[in-house]
Amino acid sequence: MNIQNIQTALEQLPIPQSMRTLGSEKAIDSVAERSDGLYIKLQFGFPVNHIRQALTEQIQTALNPLTNGAPLHIDIGLSVATHKVQPGVNTIKGVKNIIAIASGKGGVGKSTTTANLAVAMANMGARVGVLDADLYGPSQPTMLGVAQSKPEQQDKKLIPIIAEGGIQVMSIGFLVDTEQAVVWRGPMLSQALQQLLFQSQWDDVDYLFIDLPPGTGDIQLTLSQKVPVTGSVVVTTPQDIALIDARKAVDMFQKVNIPIFGVLENMSVHICSQCGHAEAIFGSDGGKNLAENLGVPLLGQLPLSLPVREAMDNGSAVQMQASQPAVAEIYTQAAWQIAQAIADKGKDFSSRFPKIVVE
């Protein structure tokens, strides 16, 4: 068995559902022949649970002629790095990468998108968190099924609630009466966001999704100036009026040097639950055209779906994705594109630099 030939064959193997190879991603950690077969250890900088089976089968097919039928032992690991954020902002202990989910206006499904992207990323094998920054209308506790929970405190830090799928959740909805109006001005909102983020004891989160309120106001400004954001996703419907506001969100991120990973178009079509007829109630391809004009990916086009709406109201996003594979696949592919885009960014090494103290 020629290990060098095996290494070369592995490096040329394409990673399923991508334009990448094992060699281009430097994913081959080790290849070793032992008495009971060939041991291959792979290490990825993005989660790959959703393609694990396809990848394993590709490796077995490619190496079979080179191993004389020896058993293969394939270990696939994940090590997500902390990537660069906007200049002058320090990263947060316990959080590697932050993705801001934004829209220019309300009612386009931004919170639904945040919850389902988090579930999809967790299903792909990542450690995931959700910060509900929509302080006027916190909905993540309900959508992720933890509305009745209260975070504990430890060493003056809040311990995020663990939702199904291992998702760490923090929201103002845990701390205030959600039936009472939040009548806070901008500075109070900004302070609350920073406290929720910086005073929470995040536990080794690979990707933290921040569900932003609609618009481009104080919360968004605080996010761009104080919070280390790896990148953003803009959610819109195909409707012209939603696209006008979505462009404002895009413009805001561009002005504060936060990259946009893509546009996700929600409510693309309505599919009748009785007859299956599909109708573009809000117009066609608005999000797609916006993404093309911006030169960013269209992460997906999601239907207006009764099971999704029911799951968000019932706090059963995990079960919904398990029972609705077509919808789950759209969210998975969107999360997959986001994870790859993050992996392509430069790494952040600021935590390795010693702090200089002048006495």
Rank of each mutant, 00 (worst) to 15 (best):
2 N>F: 00
4 Q>A: 15
6 I>V: 15
13 L>W: 00
13 L>P: 13
15 I>F: 08
16 P>M: 04
20 R>C: 04
21 T>P: 05
24 S>F: 06
24 S>A: 14
25 E>K: 02
26 K>L: 05
27 A>V: 09
28 I>L: 01
29 D>P: 01
32 A>T: 14
34 R>I: 07
36 D>F: 02
39 Y>C: 14
42 L>E: 04
55 L>Q: 03
57 E>Y: 00
61 T>A: 15
65 P>H: 03
66 L>G: 00
69 G>A: 05
70 A>M: 13
73 H>K: 13
74 I>G: 08
76 I>S: 07
81 A>S: 15
83 H>K: 07
85 V>A: 12
86 Q>M: 12
90 N>H: 14
94 G>M: 11
104 G>L: 08
106 G>K: 00
112 T>P: 10
115 A>D: 10
117 L>S: 10
119 V>Y: 04
119 V>I: 10
122 A>N: 07
123 N>L: 09
123 N>K: 14
123 N>C: 05
125 G>D: 11
129 G>T: 03
129 G>W: 02
131 L>D: 06
134 D>P: 12
134 D>K: 01
135 L>V: 14
138 P>A: 01
139 S>P: 09
140 Q>T: 02
142 T>G: 04
145 G>N: 04
149 S>Y: 03
150 K>C: 01
157 K>V: 07
163 A>Y: 03
163 A>Q: 10
165 G>T: 05
165 G>R: 01
166 G>W: 06
169 V>Y: 03
176 V>P: 13
177 D>L: 08
177 D>M: 05
180 Q>P: 04
182 V>D: 07
184 W>N: 10
185 R>Y: 02
186 G>M: 08
187 P>C: 09
187 P>W: 04
192 A>L: 03
193 L>V: 14
194 Q>D: 08
196 L>P: 06
199 Q>C: 14
202 W>L: 10
207 Y>K: 01
207 Y>I: 01
209 F>W: 02
211 D>N: 03
212 L>Q: 05
213 P>R: 01
219 I>Q: 09
219 I>H: 09
228 P>Y: 01
231 G>C: 02
232 S>N: 01
235 V>P: 08
235 V>R: 02
236 T>E: 11
237 T>P: 13
242 A>V: 08
243 L>Y: 00
244 I>K: 01
245 D>N: 12
247 R>D: 11
250 V>D: 09
251 D>A: 15
251 D>H: 08
253 F>N: 06
254 Q>V: 03
254 Q>S: 13
254 Q>A: 12
263 V>N: 08
264 L>A: 03
273 S>R: 07
282 F>N: 00
284 S>G: 08
292 E>G: 12
292 E>S: 15
295 G>P: 11
296 V>I: 13
298 L>K: 05
300 G>D: 06
301 Q>W: 03
303 P>D: 07
305 S>G: 12
308 V>S: 04
309 R>A: 07
310 E>K: 13
314 N>R: 12
316 S>E: 15
320 M>W: 01
320 M>I: 05
321 Q>I: 04
322 A>K: 09
331 Y>E: 10
334 A>W: 01
336 W>H: 13
336 W>R: 06
336 W>C: 00
337 Q>F: 02
341 A>Y: 04
341 A>Q: 14
343 A>L: 10
344 D>H: 12
346 G>Y: 00
348 D>R: 00
350 S>P: 04
353 F>I: 15
